[in-house]
C-alpha cells in the first residue's frame, strides 16, 4: 500500500487492524484510536480518497490501496495547488485553526479527514448537511458548533 504517497511494504498478521498498522508499523501516530468500535471516527483516514474508520478495516484489506492520514493531508493539498494560509496547509486544516474548531484535539484528525472526504462528495453543503455528514465523528468536548463553522468555511474557499 502507499501511505501519504510513500510505498510501504510490511508483513502483517491478517488480524492486524489498519489503525494499528498505521500507528505501529508505519509509525504515524496522528491517527487516534478512540472507541475502537467504529462509532467515534477518531481513527478516520482516507482509503483511495474516501473516509474509512481504520479500526474496522484490516490492514490486509488495504493491500495495494492509497492511504492518506492527517500527516499527509497538507502535502496532498500542496501537490494539488489548493493549500492555503500561513502554514500552507490543507484548506480544512486552515479552517479548523481559524474557527478554533477544537478543544482537546483528540477527535480533530478524524474530524478533518471525515470532513475533507465529505466535501469531496458534497462541495457546497448546508449546515444541516455538514452535521449529517459528520454524524460518524464524535467530539466529547461537544465542540461541534465551531467544527461545523470550519467545514462551512472550508467549503466556501474551495
Amino acid at each position: 500500500m502507499s501511505v501519504n504517497g510513500q510505498s510501504q511494504s510490511h508483513d502483517v498478521e491478517p488480524r492486524t487492524l489498519l489503525v494499528h498498522h498505521i500507528r505501529e508499523n508505519v509509525g504515524l501516530t496522528g491517527t487516534n484510536i478512540g472507541c475502537d468500535t467504529s462509532s467515534c471516527g477518531a481513527c478516520t483516514v482516507h482509503l483511495d480518497g474516501q473516509s474509512v474508520k481504520s479500526c474496522t478495516v484490516l490492514a490486509v484489506q488495504a493491500e495495494g490501496a492509497a492511504i492518506t492520514t492527517i500527516e499527509g493531508l497538507a502535502d496532498e493539498a500542496r501537490a494539488a495547488g489548493t493549500s492555503t494560509g500561513e502554514q500552507d496547509w490543507h484548506p480544512m486544516q486552515e479552517a479548523f485553526q481559524q474557527c478554533h474548531a477544537l478543544q482537546c484535539g483528540y477527535c480533530t484528525p478524524g474530524m478533518v479527514m471525515a470532513a475533507t472526504s465529505f466535501l469531496n462528495e458534497n462541495a457546497s453543503p448546508s449546515e444541516d448537511e455538514v452535521r449529517e455528514g459528520l454524524e460518524g465523528n464524535l467530539c466529547r468536548c461537544t465542540g461541534y458548533h465551531n467544527i461545523v463553522k470550519a467545514v462551512l468555511s472550508a467549503a466556501g474557499e474551495s
Binding site: G41, V52, A114, S117
Partner: peptide, 9 residues
C-alpha cells in the same frame, strides 16, 4: 445506514 465512512465500506 451508519454514517458516511461506514457506507464507503
Amino acid at each position: 445506514v451508519g454514517d458516511p465512512s461506514v457506507r464507503h465500506r
